[in-house]
């Protein structure tokens, strides 16, 4: 278990924390957040590469505050690989062995696992992006760390190499049983690799928990926006209902709060129809299509109901069947359980 307790670090233009974070032992923990939110700084405080102002870093219940980086059992892989450019791949991988290692996979095994045999005598300048990252991984793994810190390791790679490296990371994680902490702002990485995670914004932890909780139960308005929910609507809560400023009355799930707040409805939870209302749905409103935009494989349809704008994502097949255009009147609906509230 890695535990960060009340961790703070101030710079002239940025303040991290206080950060309280629990990273389960052996997990693949995803640290998400916008660029400049403090993800790398959190990784560097765990590695002991940045002096903290207050709080403490615990690894396996041991306070690491006064332990030097090389004695924490932590490996780090940066976005730009940070390979030593004057050393060959082999020299890079064996660099940490000068200061000892304990158990774990042997160097030859790591080299084989990451398919680096043919590259051992090359200098990093002669490697592709993917090869550099594999070498950086091998170098960090060679010292058998109990924690691997990955700082956006795939952000500089082509899409096809990302998929490849993701699979490699999954294999390495399952073989080494090491705790992996990976900073990323790529949701595909988070969903396909992560077992748990946290979202950082402006130096603060917004939410932590399982990946499903983060993506499907956002705890606040920032989290809803961060996880891609477009339909964020200010409301006033009135007994299991939420009323928008223009009077739309929305049925709410159990446990709904009172007073003023905000609801979020995932775009793919909103159905659009031109025919009769959907029977099992109480949240149904009539509106006018204001815009249709191709978005990825689907279509984003913007519908205005009174003065409230909703966006729905419709797959191509459903969009063709729907056959709507700008200015058409349609009805939208969603399940009560799909409504998030803050």
């Amino acid at each position: 278990m890695i535990r960060l307790k009340g961790l703070t670090k101030s710079f002239s233009a940025f303040k991290l924390g206080p950060v309280d974070l629990d990273i389960p032992e052996g997990s693949f923990f995803m640290l998400m957040g916008p660029t400049g939110s403090g993800k790398t700084l959190i990784l560097e405080t765990i590695a002991g590469l940045t002096q903290i102002d207050e709080g403490c870093v615990e690894i396996s219940r041991r306070n690491m505050n006064s332990i030097k980086p090389g004695r924490r059992g932590v490996g780090i892989v940066y976005q730009d690989s940070a390979l030593f450019p004057h050393l060959t791949v082999k020299e890079n991988i064996s660099y940490g062995l000068k200061w000892g290692r304990k158990g774990g996979l042997g160097t030859a095994e790591i080299v084989e696992m990451l398919d680096l045999e043919q590259l051992l005598n090359r200098l990093p300048g002669k490697l592709s992006g993917g090869e550099k990252q594999r070498t950086a991984l091998a170098r960090a793994l060679a010292t058998n760390p109990s924690v691997m810190l990955l700082d956006e390791p795939m952000s500089s790679l082509d899409q096809q190499f990302r998929g490849y490296l993701r699979r490699e990371l999954k294999t390495i994680h399952s073989r080494t049983k090491t705790t992996f902490v990976m900073a990323t702002h790529d949701f595909t990485d988070a969903v396909s690799l992560g077992t748990a995670g946290a979202v950082v914004n402006n130096g603060q932890i917004e939410q932590q928990g399982s990946i499903d909780e983060i993506f499907f139960k956002p705890s606040n308005r920032f989290m809803a926006a961060f996880t891609g929910m477009k339909n964020l609507i200010p409301v006033e809560y009135e007994e299991k209902k939420a009323v928008t400023a223009d009077g739309l009355c929305i049925d709410m799930p159990e446990g709904c709060r009172t007073g003023k707040g905000c609801i979020a409805v995932p775009q793919d939870s909103i159905s659009v129809s031109t025919g009769s209302p959907v029977e099992d749905r109480t949240n149904q409103f009539s509106g006018q299509v204001t815009e249709i935009v191709r978005e990825g494989y689907g279509y984003a349809i913007e519908i205005i109901c009174r003065t409230t704008v909703f966006t729905s994502i419709v797959p191509p097949d459903a969009f063709r069947k729907l056959n709507v255009k700008q200015g058409d009147t349609v009805s939208i609906s969603w399940k009560v359980s799909s409504t998030h509230f803050f």
Binding site: A47, A82, F84, R139
Partner: peptide, 27 residues
Amino acid sequence: VSPRLENVSMSLGASRFSTFRRITLPL
């Protein structure tokens, strides 16, 4: 010389002086 190279070297067990001698100075 990127400070990240020095960070990686120290995380792998090298002291600050050793990092300076093996990484920073040659580069």
